[in-house]
Design a protein around this nucleic acid. Structure first.
Lengths: 208, 208
DNA sequence: TTAGAAATCACTCAAAAGGGGGATGCCGGT
DNA sequence: ACCGGCATCCCCCTTTTGAGTGATTTCTAA
């Protein structure tokens, strides 16, 4: 049963979302909040599968909120639920790692579809949003969500072939210790703790 | 009259094969080579009906050779003619598209039978080879070429999520040392030396 | 019935990997 | 001129892993 957290400052709307989701026995809202103030710690504590996030909230915006959630727990799917239709906020959210982008005019039934869609790894969004995203692909290349340096990429590519630190060092003609440094930085950027996790993450999420 | 190409680096053997086949007025050897270096272009040029292919050759192996021939001209029948009886090479050849697999200990008379067999669309192979192929089909469904036990599969599935030995042990409610035993066996069966290589191999070759 | 697998656990030893520091030099932007 | 990112290297220390051996139990198939 997927766990939800809802960030939405409009009280009636938030409550009706909570009510809707909890009415469906497939879902469970484990937390609701009217601000992104503690998005990171809430995510760490509740380990939600899906986060519904408004953009326009007092204090920390939903765009920052997405970053906080994703940095804390990248596997949590974040669906933006907002009135904003302008490109700037849209792309800011997607760059921050949002999995879906729904307008508040979206009928509730479509919301449930969207939830199922993200659970299956999809990226639900309104048609008008989708077309803008497609259009942007002509130039925008969303590779570096992990912001790895060129050298780190080289090291990572060797790592995911299963090579040891020694072999990587020999291959790149640099010292063992340097490779270790790169690996430490890579692990931090990928939010993993060891090479095995890194390989698993990269290959499963086809990051490279 | 079916045309032959023979790839065999052992000169006396290759020459005797050529002599044998050309002595039979039903067959014609249109080319012979001691390496698979130009297997693709030779196949394109001579359009052979049958290729006799050794496995162990300097440079490009016969296994690669089969691929080259089959990619160039799928209707050409390839008969592997080799001393190797081990499963790994056998299955590699069959996966690469070999039509038959004969051991060099096969008497010449049987070789002619085999040629007729492939010309009729059959798949000639020595009984010992055939039995291994049949045997492999029982398990081939579940996990493919690596014959992992059910428990080993469970461990491997956790491994490729990047989990540590400790975590795997806790997840399966077995001891740390048992997981280590399973991992050692898995590494042997996958022909790798460490977990990172195993993850890389499994995910890159989408074995699971 | 017995030989062989599968699964379980244990112990040793050495190598590899991970986490924490810190240091240097280079380069680009403010 | 200064700061930050990048790449390079070094040290210390702990944990994890790999490799080798060996043992027990259970179950199945020859």
């Amino acid at each position: 049963m997927p766990d939800f957290i809802i960030f939405e400052d409009n009280d009636p709307l938030r409550e009706s979302l909570v009510y809707m989701l909890n009415s469906d026995k497939r879902y469970k809202v484990v937390y609701e909040s009217n601000s992104c103030e503690h998005a990171a710690s809430l995510t760490r504590i509740h380990q939600p599968d899906i986060v519904l996030m408004d953009i326009d909230m007092p204090g920390i915006s939903g765009i920052e909120g997405v970053k906080l959630v994703k940095e804390t727990r990248p596997e949590t799917a974040v669906i933006m639920y907002t009135v904003f239709e302008d490109d700037e906020k849209l792309f800011a959210c997607l760059c921050a790692g949002a999995n879906g982008y729904l307008l508040k005019k979206t009928p509730p039934a479509r919301l449930f579809d969207a939830i199922e869609e993200v659970l299956e790894g999809g990226a639900p969004m309104n048609p008008s949003i989708a077309s803008r995203v497609i259009a942007s692909f002509k130039k925008k290349q969303g590779n570096q969500k992990y912001d790895l340096s060129p050298r780190e990429l080289e090291v990572l590519q060797l790592l995911i072939k299963g090579h040891s630190t020694k072999i990587i060092a020999a291959t790149l003609f640099i010292s063992f210790e340097t490779v270790r440094s790169h690996l430490k930085n890579i692990y931090n950027k990928l939010h993993v703790n060891c090479g095995k996790e890194a390989i698993a993450k990269v290959l499963n999420e086809r990051i490279l």
